[in-house]
Structure formats: C-alpha cells, structure tokens
Nucleic acid binder design. Structure first.
Lengths: 342, 342
DNA sequence: GGCTTGTGAGAAAGCGTTTTCAGATCAATG
DNA sequence: CATTGATCTGAAAACGCTTTCTCACAAGCC
C-alpha cells in the first residue's frame, strides 16, 4: 500500500501539467507562483493544462518545500461563547490579507488538552494564536521556549517570551466598580468565572482594589455560561449585596432570568452588571450595563503581532486594550431600606 | 533564502534524533509510529533522544510521505450562530477518535468565497464537511466531481455524488404548521432566511404544503440573525397573521423583543414559533415554541459518514434526521375578534 | 566577428518523513 | 557444522513541490 489513496485514479501532479504543456515542472511552478519571468506563450500553455487537468498543488509538498504552511492556528476555549466569533473574523481577515488560512480549534474549556492542541497546531501552522489560555504558567513557559511564533490573546503572563494582546480586564472592572460606587452601592457580589482563568483573576483583583471606593465584595463561584449564571443567581440574596457583577454577559443574563423568576426586580432591587458587551442584540429584553472591548481590534492587533513575529520582528511589551463602560438599564441606585423608593 | 525560517536555530529533524540515539532515521520512525518491532533498548534510547531534543515530527513531511494529512476540514457559514458549535463538538470528538484534527473555517455567509475555501480545505485535509452550503448547485457538482471525500450537512442536493446528512427541515416545519393549525391559526407569516439557503427553501416548501391544513402564508424577507428578526417584526402587523413562523430561533427572539416593544403581546395577540431550539437557555425570558434536531447526532453522523467515505466506503442515500416539536410559551390559540378572550 | 552579458528554461538537489528493499545477525534445524 | 529462516536494522527511494544551478541561446559591445 503505497499510500492511503485507496486505488482511486492517481492524483495529478505538477509534472503531469508540465508534460501536458510541453514544459518542465520548474516552469510550471514559476508560472503558477509568478516567481520568475517566463515566455507568455509557455505560460498560456501551462494555464491551459492546469485548467484542463484540474491541477491543484499539493499543500503538504508546498509546505515542505517552502518551509512554511501558509496557515495560522487559533485555539479558543469555547466556540459557543459569542465573544470569539468576532475575534476570529478579524483574525481571519488579517490572515487572508497575508495569504494565510486560519485553522481553528477549541479546547472545550478543558485545560488538560490545551497543551497537546497547541503542539498539534505548532506542527502544522506557521504561527499560533492562543486565546484566553487556561494553561498553567509553567506549561506556557515550556511552550514559548519552543521558538515557534506564538501570540497570547487575553492572557498576560509577566516575563514570558511570547507577545500578548489583551483587553484590560482590570481596568474594565474598575470602571464597573466606579460606576456602582457612584450610584451608591457598597455591597457587591461577584459571580466568578472559571477558576483557572486569568481574565477572571484580573476581575477579582480589580474588585479587591475597589475597596478604595468603599466597596466590599462577596465572591460566589459560578462559571462562564448563562446556565451557570442562572444556577448561581439564587445565592446572591444571602449576601446582602445591592449590586451583582459577573464574569461575563452570558452569566449576567442567566442571572437576570433567574432573578426575574424569583421576583427580584432588576435594577430596582438589585443592579446587575455584565462584562464583554456580547452582541445578543434584541435577544435579551434587559439591556445590560456592561463593559466592552473592541473585539475586532483585539483580533486584528493580535493577528498583526503574530504576522510580524513570523516575519522575524519581535515586539516586546504586552498590549492592553482599554475597555469602555456602557451604562444601560440593569443598574440603578440601591434601594435604601430606611427610605421609601418609587 | 533557503526557506522562511529566518536564521533561527535550525529545526530538529528525525535524523538528528537518530544521530543522538545512535540509530537510523528509519528506526526512529518505526519506534515513534509503532509500525514494526524494534529492540527495546534502542526504543528507549530513541525516546530519550526525542524528549531531550524536543523533537516533533514535521506535519507536512508526514503528510507528503503518508499521502494523508490527518485532518478533516469543516466549513460553516457563520460561527456566531450557536447552532454550529454543538455540531462542531460532535464532529471534533469523532475526528479525534479516528486520530484526526479538525480545521474549521467560516464563509461569513458569503457564498462567493465558499467555493475557494472548500478547494483550500481539500488541498490540506483528507476530507471536508460542508455545512449548510449556500453554493449554487452547479458549483457543488463541480466540487464533488473532484473525487475528494466530501460530505454535506444540512443540505440535500438530489443526484449528487457526495453523501449528505441533514435535519428534516420540511418535516420540522410541517410539525409547526400542524401545531398552529390545531390551535386554530389560519393566517401565518414567515420571516424568511437567506435566499440562497436550501434550509430556508425547505421550510417554505412545507409552509406551502400546509395549505392542506387550511393555512395561508405570507412570506416576509428577513435573514438569519436576531437583528434581522428585530427589524422585520414590524412588518408582521400588516399581514393579518395570527401566528409568526421564522427561519430560526435567533430571528424569532429578535422578533419577540421588537413585538414586546411595540406592545404586541406574545402569545396572546400573536403566536411566535422558532426553529432549531438553540441553547439560549436562560438568556431569553420567553421560552419559544420551536422544533429541534439532535445537533450532536447530526454532527456525529456526518463525521462518521465522512470517515467511512475516506476509508473507501461510499454509502449512498441522503440521511434525514427527523425534528421534534417543543411546545412552550410562545404559542397559543388565536384571539377570535368576534369573541371576548381572557 | 569574437567576446562578454543577460535571459529564460531544464536538470537536479533538496525539504523531512515513511516505507520498501536489502543486508546482517542469530537461532534453529537437518 | 552448514544451511535455511526469521528478525531486526540501515540505506535508499519516493512523496510533490520549490529553488538553485547550469546551460543554451540571443543580444550588445568594442
């Protein structure tokens, strides 16, 4: 068994094209890649032969000969989160403009397979973009030691060789806390995201820094989906909080739905704040107060960084994209118990 | 410029490993692939050398030598639609169990680039899974003529060489119509999906067949996102319809939101039906009456079909997976004008 | 008109694997 | 003890392309 092609008619190769056009394989290659000047009449014959035979260059052979794959790999934790499609679209567009394809893989929020997937990606891509990695720092260090172009998105690890582009989650949560403090909230609950998430720890760091605003925080374990939010929302009542902050919009919306069912009015009795400003336009009735980062720009910048890294330039410092606060209908001043409201 | 690796230290190859272990490259290959028996002590030396040098086989070289890539490609119209992640997870899992990676690309609902992307995928994958293709029939025929393993998901084209697995959209819409007819609805509006979508035309075909139930239909152009639904919902009033059917749940939810804003009560004044049963659990307050297909099974079956196709077996007939009706809170009997309701 | 340049095309050498093929070692058998 | 056979290992060919190298030919210069 020569190879896996089970007896079908044999594939058409570049020499077949050459033979059909009466030229050498080298010439065909030159015509197809425009890499050197060839006689126009020969070129025409080559093109004819190509269309006639339906020739398509073998990607593996090209990759091997050229030493590059023409592909970048992107690893995301969860495709079901609307956050990533926006980033991916931007990444794709940058990659395409550089003549590269994009290969997407997801870890399904399972950090244990993340390392393997990155290695897989490295073996078959010119560069990889690692989004919201949940990997342990040590693994990440080992990976970056491989000298393979790698850019982190939404995860900053100090002292790492790889460049990183991230939303400024800390700043984003600070904006939220400032907003809540201004409204008069003092006790705040937080529905926490995945434990291993750096983005989550940044949010928590900001919540703790918000003590400076006179805010005290209760952290409730939760997760990253609307289901998690729905399930955890009942716990909030026991904390005495007048405002609820969340890991992301999905969680917030899930919580709002549950609160609605429990008869807790938002924002009159409890303010709820999201995170990310995910485009669930017109799906949820409640328009969430939240913070956003331009996801397109995030993806674009990460992709550009990766491209320049592959081109040999190593830009150093991590880039933080600042977030923006959107005050909408889910936040209001707390109801003061000793006073009649509304 | 030998290749694109710009002067970094040269990559470690299988011969390097062989040299370090004091064996030939062939032996290293045999050890790593378990393709033949080798002396245990040699094998141990090889493994040591591999870990020491951090050797990772070059995917392109393997692909070339083996004649296969160990990869399947999946093309979807839009990653932002929650329908696909579910399918993708199932596909990934099947692929992984066959030792293959999954490469995902999206067309962004742009049929004009779909053909190119499929060709790209064919050049670097052992097989491709084409989801909800918007391609013209002729292009599809040309593509399947390439003798490259290809499976269609959610698109059936009679007389095509490629196997297909699809949800039974016709049957799904028939279920919806039956439900509405039973409730007493006679005039129904439909917010139509993308024009080029086969899935959409199947729904319309069913709506027309539903005349047998005494139902008359007004078709309104719309689209596939919640934004589209939101924008088109205002048109429904003019049609005199007592029930609204939609291309998918996203559209339905967008419409519900708009109707809510317009003061139209759902389902009292207008019944609304979704399609797909997308897991926006706990995000939307309205729980939609809708139809569903087991998306995991859909993805799994398509992936299995693709695998067996790659293994040389060609199973013929298109497979339809039947849909299931979920009656929830967004449908009710029509309000009879000549009668006091509630 | 002989010589140097310049130009375009074919031959051939890789790229890093896998796999066939052939050779070497060793055990078993007559 | 020599021969066969079975194992294991290394050498080398092949995978399909790109890119150097080399050469033939034409044009330009004194």
């Amino acid at each position: 068994m020569r190879n896996a092609r089970q007896g079908r008619q044999t594939r058409v190769t570049i020499s077949d094209v050459g033979a059909a056009a009466g030229v050498s394989a080298s010439t065909v290659s030159r015509v197809l890649n425009g890499t050197a000047k060839v006689d126009p009449s020969l070129a025409a014959r080559v093109h004819d032969a190509v269309t006639q035979l339906g020739y398509r260059p073998n990607a593996a052979a090209q990759g091997l000969a050229r030493g590059e794959w023409g592909t970048i790999g992107v690893l995301v934790p969860n495709l079901a989160n609307p956050y990533f499609p926006d980033v991916l679209k931007a990444v794709s567009s940058v990659a395409r403009s550089h003549g590269r394809r994009v290969m997407v893989m997801e870890t399904d929020e399972d950090p244990s397979i993340e390392h393997d997937l990155v290695e897989d990606l490295m073996r078959s891509c010119d560069g990889v973009l690692l989004c919201s990695s949940r990997m342990a720092r040590a693994d990440l260090v080992a990976l970056t030691a491989r000298e393979h172009p790698l850019v982190l998105l939404d995860r900053i690890v100090p002292g790492l060789a790889a460049p990183a582009v991230s939303a400024d989650f800390f700043g984003g949560m600070m904006l939220i806390c400032g907003h809540l403090a201004q409204l008069g909230h003092r006790r705040v609950a937080y529905l926490s995201g995945p434990e291993v998430s750096w983005a989550n720890s940044e949010r928590i760091r900001a919540l703790e820094a918000a003590k400076a605003f006179g805010i005290s925080v209760t952290i409730l374990p939760c997760g990253s989906t609307s289901r998690h939010g729905y399930e955890a929302a009942a716990e909030v009542a026991g904390t005495g909080a007048t405002a609820l902050t969340t890991y992301n919009d999905l969680v917030a919306l899930g919580a709002v739905t549950r609160l609605h069912e429990l008869g807790v009015r938002v924002p009159e009795e409890l303010s709820v704040v999201g995170f990310d400003d995910i485009a669930l336009d017109h799906v949820a009735h409640t328009s969430l107060t939240t913070v956003s980062v331009p996801r397109g720009q995030l993806g674009r910048q990460a992709a550009e960084t990766l491209e320049s890294l592959m081109a040999g330039k190593h830009d150093g410092e991590p880039v933080y994209l600042s977030m923006e606060l959107h005050v909408r209908d889910s936040t209001a001043p707390p109801r003061v118990t000793s006073e009649v409201t509304g």
